[in-house]
Amino acid sequence: MLRLFSKILKTGVITERCKTPKNDELEQLGIEIKRRIDKKFSGSIAIREVDAGSCNGCELEIHALNNPYYDIERFGIHFVASPRHADVLLVTGPVSRHMQTALLRTYEATPNPKWVVAVGDCAVCGGEFGVSYASCGAVSNVIPVDVTIPGCPPTPLALMKGLLGLIKA
């Protein structure tokens, strides 16, 4: 147990701090996001992530938002387990035809008001997969999309910028 505490103390807080944001893009972004979330969403938005056919690359970068470097929860953004608890659907992938109904049902299960963010080139425009017998292409071909975050995959910083765009919209 002592080992744990000593490692925790030694690691310290590596999350880039909010007080000296001058040169740090992440911090400036975070503070801006936090301000708007506080104002519009009483301090918190809940995101449900839906992989509608992604290669899993986008998921890896969305995961990274929760690591101690980005620690996105400190800005009031958290990921929830059910669309019924969500304000925002973060959708990745070209929508595979086999996931089309599942995505529609997830969308219907999300209470209003709700926003959809299409994450990654595939979700934005079909990407490397496009439209085929197996793929519906972009998310907007299946459900209405409010904000797009391109990239293959978008970096965690790009994801945060995109979420800020949503809150501003």
Partner: peptide, 11 residues
Amino acid sequence: LGYVHKGIEKI
């Protein structure tokens, strides 16, 4: 499985 079948072999 098969939910994320994207037709990779075909395209």
